[in-house]
């Protein structure tokens, strides 16, 4: 178990800058998720921590020791790859014992460790099978077992669930989180799926274009996104972000809708943000025309057109309207987000 510090880490491939000086502090035992759209540099950062990519600038420390020039095997980390990277010609047992075999561990210790990990992951009956004989979820567990047996200081996960189907993904998500809580090992997890990030992380690091947009606890990011990127990225369905200006005693969107502002709102506001779930059905609300109704069972998502502006609302109530009908909605004023012309959150 250890802390991980990334200080001004830079990565350059030829003339392309991938990371522009990134700072992340990870506490001992913390579960950190690096999240962002593809190409944002999150996997590169993880691979730099693993030692699979060299560091063009800055430094990375694991457990207080700077590891810039330490080879991967001496960093005391374990990594789970996106396609699991199980050795196809070895059985599950051999796959899990491989690192210990290289370290010349005694046979009985190896057997014991493999058994222990297999028990934790429910792989006891599969130890003599080959990877090709396993399902996607089982392969995923073997990949984790291979990481567990090493008792590493840090677990690294590189989009480990993206090859699984939706149902299994939800199940493995809980399993990984539960496992992490049980082992209390510092974990860095890369994903492009913000739901994975929200549900699993102690700390989320939102990355975009080689920079960190915001880092913090999941709910802090949800409640107070620092800028338009984070506001649009965290939360599903995504926040309504409506460009416009403060005028006429409210916020006039470019599409012509007039939305109410919270008291004391900053007059510089250039974008009005409201999450779909923070819109309420209200008889005295703003009137809009229904474009689309999407019931999910637990809630109903409604796309409305107010003037030329389209906004999405998610309601607990069952909305009975049909496209073309009128509906009145009102934003919860305490949960309105306002962003300045530079895209940053206004106080």
């Amino acid at each position: 178990m250890a802390t991980v510090s990334v200080r001004q880490a830079k990565k350059v491939f030829g003339s392309t800058k991938i990371l522009h000086g990134v700072d992340v502090e990870i506490a001992d035992g913390e579960f950190v998720v690096l999240v962002g759209p593809s190409g944002c540099g999150k996997s590169t950062l993880l691979r730099m921590i693993a030692g699979l990519e060299n560091i063009s600038g800055g430094e990375i420390a694991i457990g207080g020791r700077v590891v810039n020039n330490v080879p991967p095997k001496d960093r005391d980390i374990a990594m789970v790859f996106q396609n699991y990277a199980l050795y196809p010609h070895m059985t599950v047992r051999e796959n899990m014992a491989f690192s210990m075999k290289l370290a010349k561990a005694p046979a009985d210790v190896m057997e014991e460790e493999v058994k222990r990990a297999a028990k934790i992951l429910g792989l006891d009956a599969l130890l003599d099978r080959y990877p090709r004989q396993l399902s996607g979820g089982q392969r995923q567990r073997v990949a984790m077992g291979r990481a567990i047996v090493r008792h590493p200081q840090v677990f690294l996960f590189d989009e480990p669930l993206s090859n699984l189907d939706a149902k299994l993904r939800v199940q493995m998500r809980s399993e990984i989180k539960e496992l992490q809580q049980r082992l209390a090992t510092t974990t860095i997890y890369v994903t492009h799926d913000q739901i994975e990030a929200m549900t699993m992380a102690d700390q989320i690091v939102v990355m975009n274009g080689g920079r960190i947009e915001q880092a913090g606890a999941p709910l802090a990011l949800y409640d107070r996104p620092a800028n338009l990127f984070v506001a649009g990225f965290i939360g599903s369905p995504a926040m309504n972000l409506l460009p416009g200006r403060v005028a006429d005693g409210g916020f006039r969107t470019d599409g012509g809708a007039l939305l109410p502002l919270p008291p004391g709102a900053n007059a510089q506001a250039a974008t009005y943000g409201i999450r779909p779930e923070h819109l309420m059905l209200a008889d005295d609300g703003v009137e809009g025309t229904i474009v689309l109704v999407e019931p999910t069972g637990s809630e109903t998502q409604v796309t409305l057109r107010i003037g030329e502006t389209q906004i999405i609302g998610a309601f607990r109530e069952r909305v009975q309207g049909r496209p073309g009908d009128l509906l009145r909605v009102a934003p919860d004023l305490s949960l309105v987000h306002l962003f300045g012309p530079d895209g940053n959150r206004l106080p």
Binding site: A50, G51, L52, M79, F81, N83
Partner: peptide, 17 residues
Amino acid sequence: PYELEECALIDGASRLQ
């Protein structure tokens, strides 16, 4: 897949291994 080798590298194998 190159990932197999990267994984082995993390597992502690040398190039020849």
